[in-house]
């Protein structure tokens, strides 16, 4: 499963940002920065995605959309909140329609600061996310293995 760490697929969603961070996310995927050369692909389908890159401070209407997207993603999954709005609501923090950060709705693993976040920082955030993804995977396979072993042990116990 080590290839998961090498070429994660990304799901991007704009949850009430100003668009600045979103185009920088896209800029990461296209030439100059071009992370696609490592097999990191922007997918539109949450069931294909490993990393959710989310921008903006979440408003009333997309609360449910964000939850839905997150729940549809298969484990292990990592959430990267991009830009200051996604972290705290940023400049829009005091707007009546802003919940004030992605972590008000779904758990966030990596915060990328900046307004707008620079592509270098976003890539940094993704690299960090890959580490967390690997950890989560190890934990999952670890617990799956443990389960398997208990089952084997139980079966062995029954047979004797």
């Amino acid at each position: 499963m080590a290839f998961l760490k090498r070429s994660p697929w990304i799901l991007h969603y704009d949850a009430s940002s100003c668009n600045g961070c979103d185009i920088e996310v896209l800029a990461c995927l296209t030439p100059l920065y071009d992370v696609e050369r490592f097999g990191i692909i922007n997918t539109g389908n949450p069931k294909h995605a490993d990393i959710l890159m989310i921008t903006g401070g979440i408003n009333e209407l997309n609360r449910a959309v964000v939850k839905n997207l997150y729940e549809q993603m298969p484990e292990p999954k990592v959430v990267v909140a991009i830009g200051i709005c996604a972290a705290t609501g940023g400049i829009f923090r005091e707007c009546y329609n802003i919940a004030g950060g992605v972590d008000k709705v779904i758990p966030v693993d990596v915060y990328v600061p900046g307004c707008a976040a620079r592509p270098e920082m976003i890539i940094d955030g993704v690299v960090k996310a890959l580490g967390i993804l690997e950890e989560k995977r190890a934990k999952m396979t670890g617990s799956a293995q443990a389960k398997e072993e208990t089952r084997h042990a139980a079966e062995a116990g029954e047979s004797t």
């Binding site: 704009d14 961070c21 903006g56 209407l61 997309n62 400049i91 829009f92 802003i98 707008a116």
Partner: peptide, 28 residues
């Protein structure tokens, strides 16, 4: 889906500061 309600931020930002909010209506 992206309605933030930033027109009402004028209540909280002085008119010279609101330029920063105006810039962030859209990042493009």
């Amino acid at each position: 889906y992206i309605h933030r309600g930033l027109e009402r931020l004028i209540e909280k930002r002085e008119f010279t500061e609101y330029v920063y909010v105006a810039e962030r209506i859209c990042g493009i």
